[in-house]
Design a protein around this nucleic acid. Structure first.
Lengths: 240, 240
DNA sequence: TCAAAAGTGTTTTGTGTACACCCATGC
DNA sequence: GCATGGGTGTACACAAAACACTTTTGA
């Protein structure tokens, strides 16, 4: 750890231990990358390449570089792993248990991200990357199950308040699709009439004047997210 | 940074830069320690001892030691600064801007803490520690104003949902005192009848069968926090 | 003509808010 | 007896929840 930082936190005890190799704490970010498919919420996981966790999956993370912000680091991971740039990302919590990483002290900040799993630009970086239905995620490497749970908890808290959910859908979608995404996230069934009423009271949607095609039943109207809200989402993100 | 960690995150680019001195990122915690006095919410600040911020106040923080958890580090700061051990503490957010610390790269995790400013065990560690009404906090050192704001935002979000507020009060309190704390936190006035109705519907309070004394008006009943909830608060904390 | 989902309104229930009067105490 | 806050209940508005039938399309 650089001398200047130690001096800035002037403290005899720190000076004593600061030169020990083990004093350094590594900083990483882990991304809970969520998508939606087959009426299920899915999370992108990779086979862990650590011996200690052989056979287990883990979230996508990396060490934070010295020249990048925490937010930037999580955007980088997303970009490297999915090829997507323009996605929703939110910091959730930082995990710092002493024994959370078998190779040493690593403090990690968790982010969740919502994206359209069928986006034409989506290119998974690696064969060992797979989408897993969140209801079927078993044991994960590290404390990644805790991280996943805390991100899902945050997502459930926020999804009714703020128009996050649209990042999971293609640009054009029907009200049924939208409702199914909510049901997948919240794990409950919703009443169709009440749902439509509630959504129509917010200013979230724009009627495209188009209809579904290729459905084996009466086609529904198609909507898109109110373009004014996209900006607000980004602005909100920048605050953190 | 230890070799083992670099190997665990196997990545050619990291290996290249990992031995540079500046690669190391320091990890700190900062505590927004809140108390309540004179119908105002107050935050404990200290005069910054960095030249770059001379004349400014800052939050209480310290580097995280290699052998302590993030949560432990924030408890340690609290203990060192106030002498109090048994206080409410919650992690809020992690701040990692590149230029947030003038001496180098420091990523900090923010916690807020609620305590009884008149607790008999409270012993401030330092003469430069002062309680500042949150409405009169001006410019702070580092990004500490952002940190304070984000903690206050979180506190306001949570205070109606969960029985956090009692940590700010002495063990015995009247409904008026309780209402005044809510008003100080939320920055609004509340209707007394509606407030009492709302509180009585929750299971938060136990009627002590005692009355206020030494008040120049009709004395009110005294209450304490339902003891069952103290445990829940601690349990909740442990999760993070 | 059948299956599947679209689309639409009313009633009930619960919750939040506004508001006014009498009571107990200290001075 | 007056000032101060304690203690209580009711009416209204709004939001959430329950609930059923007709319509449109493709197969």
């Amino acid at each position: 750890m650089p001398e200047r930082i130690i001096k800035a936190f002037k403290n005899a005890e720190i000076e004593k231990i600061s030169h020990l190799d083990y004093f350094n704490i590594a900083v990483s970010v882990d991304c809970v990358i969520l998508g939606y498919e087959d009426k299920q919420l899915k999370v992108l996981l990779i086979k862990s390449d650590l011996e200690e966790f052989s056979g287990l999956n883990s979230l996508l993370g990396d060490l934070v570089r010295p020249d990048e912000d925490l937010d930037e680091a999580s955007y980088r991971i997303l970009r490297e792993r999915t090829g997507l740039n323009d996605v929703y990302l939110e910091q959730v919590q930082t995990f710092g248990r002493l024994d959370r990483h078998p190779s040493g002290r690593v403090v990690t900040t968790a982010y969740f991200s919502l994206l359209d799993l069928h986006h034409h630009q989506l290119r998974l970086s690696h064969n060992d990357l797979r989408w897993h239905p969140i209801n079927k995620v078993g044991k994960l490497a590290f404390d990644h199950k805790d991280i996943l749970d805390s991100c899902l908890h945050r997502l459930r808290q926020q999804v009714l308040e703020r128009p996050l959910i649209f990042s999971l859908l293609p640009e054009k979608f029907s009200l049924r699709q939208l409702q199914e995404v909510y049901e997948a996230i919240l794990g409950t069934e919703l009443d169709r009439r009440n749902f439509r009423k509630k959504v129509s009271l917010k200013d979230w949607l724009v009627d495209l004047g188009e209809m579904e095609t290729d459905v084996p039943h009466r086609p529904g109207k198609l909507y898109k997210l109110n373009p004014g809200l996209k900006k607000r989402l980004r602005a909100r993100l920048r605050v953190s």
